[in-house]
Amino acid sequence: MVSGLVYDRVAMLNRFRQFWTKVISPIANLLLKLGVSADAVTLVGTIGVCAGALIFFPRGHIWLGVVVITCFVFSDLIDGYMARTSGTSSKWGSYLDSTLDRLGDGAIFGGLVMYYAGSAGHSRWMAAVTLWALVMGATTSYARAKAESLGLHASGGLAERSDRLVSVLVIGFFSDVLNLPILLEIVLCVLAVASTITVVQRTLSVRKQVLSDPANAGLGTPPTAGPTTPGEGQPGDNQRPATS
């Protein structure tokens, strides 16, 4: 049952990628003709996401912030396509993309923390919950990255990166448009719990792998590449391995 759900999610994400790749390919090809690099698109996209979250969210303009963020989120589709098409995919591009993704994630949840902590949201409780969701989301990504650096694997879990971003942006938009702030509060509480569970799941997974192979449990053991789960990065970005 669980494997079927994982397969369905991966298949749906692949279809999503294929559709939007066809949509953004003319834009990406135009940028390549103009001499724009994939790294430049990555940087501009991150700046746009951060600006949309940190300018509009603290003021209570949630729906407007979501619209701006969504526009720039598609830069992650574009830069991946550009890197593959131009043959410039590299470890540097992978590092830059993954690192800037973390900044974008932090800005989105950080903007919501500022919203709840300020006069617009006026809820210390929700500010704390959102901050916890931010910390656990970052820890989820770190848990996978650290496991893979040790030759283990810690992908999957209840709330992966794409799940967190899509849910908070979609629900945040409708929560503001429909004037139902409770919707965003509920999804943030769910994400805080789900992200915590995901960290525990990945930690237990790593622990299980170590216990199952004591001979390779020492830090001096040469790492071996662990399997990865496709589709954990932002949709359409095959420029780098995901660290969601």
Rank of each mutant, 00 (worst) to 15 (best):
F109Q: 00
R202M: 02
V168R: 00
L169K: 02
Y115C: 02
L169C: 09
W92F: 15
R9K: 14
K33S: 15
K22M: 14
W125M: 14
V193K: 01
G110S: 06
V67N: 11
A159W: 00
A143V: 11
R84V: 06
V200R: 05
I186L: 14
D76S: 13
V206Q: 02
V166N: 06
R144I: 02
L184G: 09
S119H: 12
A242Y: 02
V168Q: 03
L211E: 14
A242D: 07
I69N: 01
N179R: 13
D39G: 10
Q18E: 15
G35D: 06
M114N: 08
D76L: 08
G121F: 00
G60F: 07
V170A: 11
D39E: 12
I197E: 03
D97V: 01
R207T: 12
L13F: 13
N238Y: 15
R15V: 13
D79F: 02
S94T: 07
D213M: 05
L131I: 08
V6W: 05
V66W: 00
C189F: 09
R9G: 09
P214M: 10
D39V: 07
S195T: 10
G45C: 07
K91F: 12
R124K: 15
R9F: 13
R9P: 06
G48V: 05
G236P: 01
G156N: 07
G226V: 00
T130M: 01
P181S: 07
I182Y: 13
G236T: 02
L131W: 13
V23D: 11
S167K: 04
F16C: 14
G110T: 03
L96W: 03
A127S: 12
A242P: 02
V41H: 04
Q18S: 13
P235K: 03
V168F: 10
P58Y: 08
R161E: 11
S175C: 09
F16G: 12
L30K: 14
V67Y: 09
G236F: 00
E160D: 10
N14A: 15
M1F: 14
V36I: 14
A117W: 11
A117T: 05
S167N: 12
T229S: 11
T140P: 00
K91P: 05
G218V: 12
G110A: 04
V41S: 03
S149F: 09
V23Y: 10
R207M: 13
A192F: 01
V10E: 13
Y7D: 15
A40G: 06
A215E: 15
A159E: 06
G93M: 01
V210S: 01
F174D: 03
G65P: 03
A147N: 00
T196A: 09
T88W: 03
K33E: 14
N14H: 12
C71R: 09
L150C: 08
A194D: 00
R144Y: 04
A242L: 04
G151Q: 04
K208V: 04
H122S: 15
D97G: 08
V66F: 10
R144H: 08
V200C: 05
